[in-house]
Amino acid sequence: MTDASAQPKFVLWPYTPSLPGGMVAAIVFFILSGIHIFRLVKNRTWFCIPFVIGALFEAVGYAGRAAAHNDTENKNPYIVQSTLILLAPILFAASIYMILGRLIQRTESAAFSIVRTTWTTKIFVGGDILCFCIQGGGAGMLIQAKDDAGFKMGENIILGGLILQILIFGFFVVVSGVWHRRLAARPTSASAEVPWGKYICGFITIRNLCRVIEYALGRNGYLLSHEWPLYVYDFLPMMLTLIVCIAWYDPNIKPGRKPDIEFAMRR
């Protein structure tokens, strides 16, 4: 009989997380979260709430990485960072999806969309929720893994969720791209009042592609066994996404409400 004590111990971290890296990233995201919360409340663009929650997920997630520096055997920091950093971009995407539907209505350009305006938000946000559940389930399996087999199963589930997210976001890019091109060719009178051309962001797609490669290579692959790539293909794109989207809290993209600026302009 094999002595259980002789079996190799499953290790959560293949490296010691950087304390300065985690602290700097957490501070950056907490600052950006504060800015987004201010913009959200000031402009009452409540459909951007998922964006704010995602920013807080990033901040707390990287704080968890910093906390794990001195105790790599503690599961709590590992759970916090692996779950929140993984799921935050899904929340960013949810707000982006909702913005497209509102822009189409606000610019009175529903005829230019290849998807019915009433279904735009439902299709993409619904897909986003599915991706959230799949990746959340995969993250849960990673957390509970006691050996490489369990970890591999969690990786595969996350990989499937990431691929689905890329496909959904890819379709979203097609839908928004066609609408953007058609509206640019034949602007509506309402589109002159809204800077609709600025609401494009591809950082999430770049991040998701890198994450797919990361999990496809597996736990022993270079990307998961080294820390610096995470900051290049996850921290940096998500930070840039939050910076770019600070300008997205615009009351002019809320259609159909008389108190909004555009209705005041029409009087």
Score class of each variant (00 low, 15 high):
residue 10 F to D: 05
residue 176 S to N: 12
residue 108 E to P: 02
residue 9 K to M: 14
residue 88 A to W: 09
residue 141 M to S: 02
residue 6 A to K: 14
residue 231 Y to V: 00
residue 99 I to M: 15
residue 195 P to E: 10
residue 84 L to P: 08
residue 198 K to E: 06
residue 46 W to C: 02
residue 43 N to Q: 14
residue 176 S to A: 15
residue 9 K to F: 12
residue 152 K to T: 15
residue 205 T to K: 00
residue 262 E to Q: 04
residue 86 L to V: 09
residue 213 I to M: 11
residue 52 V to W: 12
residue 28 V to N: 01
residue 108 E to H: 13
residue 129 I to S: 03
residue 160 G to E: 04
residue 139 A to F: 04
residue 106 R to P: 00
residue 76 N to H: 04
residue 178 V to N: 02
residue 29 F to H: 14
residue 236 L to V: 08
residue 17 P to H: 14
residue 237 P to N: 08
residue 136 G to F: 08
residue 17 P to E: 10
residue 13 W to L: 03
residue 236 L to P: 03
residue 201 C to M: 04
residue 194 V to W: 02
residue 84 L to F: 15
residue 62 Y to E: 09
residue 156 N to C: 05
residue 158 I to W: 02
residue 207 R to D: 12
residue 236 L to W: 08
residue 65 R to W: 08
residue 255 P to F: 08
residue 94 A to N: 12
residue 172 F to Q: 07
residue 210 C to R: 00
residue 210 C to N: 02
residue 71 D to R: 07
residue 207 R to C: 15
residue 201 C to I: 04
residue 264 A to E: 11
residue 55 A to S: 15
residue 51 F to A: 10
residue 94 A to L: 04
residue 203 F to R: 07
residue 196 W to P: 00
residue 235 F to N: 00
residue 90 I to G: 04
residue 35 I to R: 09
residue 40 L to Q: 06
residue 103 L to F: 06
residue 169 F to Y: 14
residue 32 L to F: 12
residue 15 Y to H: 10
residue 158 I to V: 15
residue 109 S to W: 01
residue 109 S to N: 01
residue 218 G to S: 11
residue 247 A to C: 05
residue 219 R to L: 08
residue 4 A to L: 12
residue 257 R to C: 05
residue 131 C to Q: 01
residue 111 A to L: 05
residue 85 I to K: 01
residue 150 G to Q: 04
residue 134 I to W: 02
residue 31 I to D: 00
residue 262 E to K: 06
residue 17 P to F: 11
residue 93 A to S: 11
residue 182 R to M: 02
residue 8 P to Q: 11
residue 186 R to F: 13
residue 202 G to I: 13
residue 225 S to N: 13
residue 172 F to H: 11
residue 177 G to Q: 14
residue 137 G to L: 09
residue 51 F to D: 10
residue 225 S to M: 10
residue 33 S to H: 08
residue 92 F to W: 10
residue 144 Q to H: 12
residue 98 M to K: 07
residue 6 A to Y: 00
residue 84 L to M: 15
residue 13 W to V: 09
residue 51 F to T: 13
residue 50 P to Q: 12
residue 103 L to T: 07
residue 22 G to R: 00
residue 222 Y to A: 11
residue 221 G to W: 07
residue 263 F to M: 12
residue 141 M to N: 01
residue 256 G to V: 09
residue 154 G to Y: 03
residue 96 I to T: 13
residue 167 L to Y: 07
residue 95 S to H: 13
residue 178 V to D: 02
residue 185 A to M: 02
residue 8 P to R: 09
residue 232 V to K: 01
residue 52 V to K: 07
residue 40 L to E: 06
residue 70 N to P: 00
residue 10 F to Q: 08
residue 51 F to Q: 14
residue 25 A to G: 03
residue 29 F to R: 05
residue 224 L to R: 12
residue 96 I to F: 15
residue 151 F to G: 01
residue 177 G to D: 14
residue 219 R to Y: 13
